[in-house]
Amino acid sequence: MQTPIVVQEVHKNFGEVKALRDISFTVNEGELFGLIGPDGAGKSTLFRILTTLLLADKGKATVNGLDVVKDYKAIRKIVGYMPGRFSLYQDLTVQENLDFFATIFNTTVKENYGLIEEIYVQIAPFKDRPAGKLSGGMKQKLALCCALVHKPTVLFLDEPTTGVDPVSRKEFWEMLQRLRQKGIAILVSTPYMDEAILCGRVALIQNGALLKIDTPQQITREFSKPLWAVKAKQMYRLIQDLRSFEDTDSCYAFGEYLHLTLKHGEADVDKLRAYLQPKGHEQFDMVPITAGIEDCFMELMKSEKQQ
């Protein structure tokens, strides 16, 4: 069995804009690999290169051992692709869309029903509804069905959960887990950092360059600085006070807490408490915590900028 996805030193420019810089990674069989980064980081460009829709300026990439430039016809037979925006026919019904995509991939819905059954039963009640009238979550499920209908060995999902509500997102990820267990290699991109932990391995991408490739657990483990979660009743005032503290390294809002790193780590804690004391923050709370992917991403972004 060939390695599902191999990317080696891929570069791509659009005029002056460097969309991708020196991208290399591999995705193994049965792996759920996440490409995590904000809009404009270069995720879609990379997807299009791998799905043979764009040519890279430099570098080499293979899908199942097939070259994305030379063997594009063969690749197009074995991959499933869900582009970034909803790309189904809005005026065709759910059933018509499915049948159409099955046929153009030379197959039928019946033939590979086993693979899509679990997702299909969820959208089956709406099978006579035009795709354009489905809710966001349903649309994504239908699109996934269409991308799976020909039993691809590699699945490319470009931001499948963007703009979808948290419930549908969660269900979608559960489906991906089960597909992975069936041996399909999946490359999925997302701008939501919290989805990183759902992937086997992730690549963090920003401004066309990879910041890091590893398991999410390892990435968070490597977060070198001590981190605190801080909160008080008046959060806005707290942010301002912390930011003006001379030894604050970074201070960002995270849910109901602020995440704080200090220039000299533990050594600064007492000094900070002394600094905050006269400010009289009510319900003040400060606890050490372990970093999440988002903390790491922000830290990596910062060090990237400094380079």
Binding site: G37, P38, D39, A41, G163, P191, I239, Y252, A253, M298
Partner: peptide, 13 residues
């Protein structure tokens, strides 16, 4: 939507 984590925080500021 889709904004990087640092900018997202700056936006909330």
């Amino acid at each position: 939507g889709g904004v990087d984590p640092v900018t997202r925080r700056q936006f909330w500021d």
